[in-house]
């Protein structure tokens, strides 16, 4: 089994979780209501925690320290989907992205948990248990905003139309993924995408939102390091203290 292909794949998963966790954490203190502020902060902590766990598996393979992996690479070496790096926008877009991303992550975790590589499969099933709450939170908000009034429904449809193409990008294969062999990721990306589409379509239609026309391709590039300027801005800020002295103890 190709070790560097595995490391590349795990880095992509960890980068997704780190960047989406970073975006969620930017809402801390500013959510529309105090109770949801507290809930989303927990979700942000858990996503960053998941990233750290995946970086630790990468560290087992490459010997790099998880903080160095997270804080020490330029944007071009990040493998997260472009979908995760987009700024939060308004609460509606953030909730749509959280919902679509977590459902995609669920399909990925289901695949990894069914794989033959014990450490990765165990990690995936552990993380999947914690993601259940994220799915609940996202769906509750999505359902209320989409069904409350015509005005809120229109805003959510607008957010969905904008998010959809880049949500498909989450399933873009990571360079070298095919060398991983069926053992590690026993469900092909196209199959994961099909299952994802079916599960989100059921919810979206039940809350009165229209499924946008699928035209993948727009949201891709992230898995091979082609990112939007949003990631550069994010990383400049995120790594500023660590970069001031990477050898120091922080």
């Amino acid at each position: 089994m190709n070790q560097s292909a595995l490391a590349a794949y795990l880095i992509a998963v960890a980068d997704d979780e780190l960047i989406i966790g970073h975006r969620h954490s930017e809402w801390t203190g500013f959510a529309p209501d105090i109770e949801s502020d507290v809930a989303l902060s927990s979700i942000a902590q858990e996503e960053i925690g998941h990233a750290r766990l995946f970086y630790e598996r990468v560290s087992d393979l490459t010997g790099n320290d998880p903080d160095h992996i997270a804080f020490g690479r330029p944007p071009a070496e990040f493998r997260n989907a472009v979908f995760a790096e987009r700024p939060n926008g308004d609460w509606g877009y953030s909730m749509v992205r959280l919902f679509l991303y977590d459902r995609a992550d669920q399909e990925r975790l289901n695949a990894l948990a069914a794989g033959e590589l014990r450490p990765v499969a165990d990690l995936a099933s552990t993380v999947r248990r914690e993601e259940r709450y994220h799915l609940m939170f996202g769906e509750q908000w999505l359902r209320r905003l989409a069904s409350a009034t015509e005005a809120s429904r229109a805003r959510m449809q607008q957010a969905l139309d904008r998010a959809w193409p880049e949500a498909l990008g989450v399933f873009e294969p990571v360079a070298g993924q095919e060398e991983l062999g069926a053992g590690v990721v026993p469900v092909a990306p196209s199959e994961q995408l099909a299952r994802w589409r079916q599960s989100v379509a059921a919810v979206l239609e039940s809350v009165g939102l229209r499924l946008p026309a699928a035209n993948g391709g727009e949201g891709t590039g992230g898995r091979s390091g082609r990112h939007s300027d949003d990631l550069r801005v994010l990383l400049d800020e995120m790594t500023s203290v660590w970069r001031s002295d990477p050898q120091a103890k922080w």
Binding site: E35, S36, V38, A39, M136, R144
Partner: peptide, 12 residues
């Protein structure tokens, strides 16, 4: 929604 929100505020 109350149950979802209560979980994080009171069982962290």
């Amino acid at each position: 929604m109350a149950l979802v929100l209560a979980k994080e505020q009171f069982t962290r």
